[in-house]
Amino acid sequence: MFITNYKFKNQFIKIISNLFALIMNAIDLLMRPLQKIIGVRRMPYIFLLPNLIFFGLFVIIPLVVNIFFSLTGGTELYISNRDFSGLRHYQTLFDCQDYFNPNSCNEDYFWRGIYNTITFVFFQVILMIFFSLLTGVILNKNIIGRGFFRSVFFFPVLLSPVVVGLIWKWILLKNGILNAIIESNGGTAISFLTAPGLAMSSSIFVSIWAHMGFYTLIILAGLQAIPPNLYEAAEMDGTSKERTFWRITLPLLLPNLVVVFVLASIKGVQTFDEIYVLTGGGPGTATSLIVQYIYTTGFAAAGQVQNFGLAAAASMVLGLVLLVLTLIQLYIGRDKESKTQDI
């Protein structure tokens, strides 16, 4: 039996290797004359071509189409049927008497989305860094069940945002699990998701819960990269634990914290699905973020005129914000890389 299996396996491997050789030979037949024609130096572009085609199809072309949509009006989806409207949609978005009062803006939903997103990102990022750092420092110590706790904190990252939203909705609803516990202990039910301030706080909390594991991992990697001899030297000098943290851990962890800051900011600005499932953007528009505005303006509102142009213009504005954040991230990454090379 074993011999038969072994023979079969060997035969199978042979067939596969022959097939592979056949394909490689075929490619070689094509590549050799090509290399003769375009030269060795240009060959890398040929190898990059498949990836570039995908990048063009799924990134560049949609981007160009989006720009075109933002400059055209009407309700038609096909580009050929849309009328050129210039910068009208951008003017609509920025038509405000007072930028700090959304009610004075022509497109008030857009500005509410902007302010809600700023509030959300501001608190979410600060708290995210704080809790990730705290968790990272604790999980870096030799505590019992360290591996288990690392998995526990990372687990929510693996969940779909819709699942996260639904789970927390069932917990936080007025007639949800948490209020049932509060009421059974003699308390009064709290409107976690339907009182404006509390809804935003709940959204921030849920978002931190869902993503903290990922940032904790980055911080944990940074903590483990700090040379232990620095701590040993500090201990020999009789440095207090607080001073060690502030003078050794934090400064050496700073590059990781900056990465966490930028990544969390980008992710925060892009937040949509989990909050949409959790609060639907309500009450009113208290938790309606900028991506939700784009989604509802372009696609979602039943029976509403689907304003693809306005949605495209808003997504261009969002794209610019994300571009700035990405450039910061690249700059930091490059800076860090050059410092490593200097060492």
Binding site: Y109, S191, L193, A195, A199, G280, G282, P283, T296, A302
Partner: peptide, 23 residues
């Protein structure tokens, strides 16, 4: 406010859950 407040914009919401539980 817990009923209409649980969504935003034009989203439809029916209060069946409260009704079914005689709430």
């Amino acid at each position: 406010k817990d009923l209409w407040g649980s969504v935003s914009g034009t989203t439809y919401h029916a209060p069946n859950e409260w009704w079914n539980n005689a709430g």
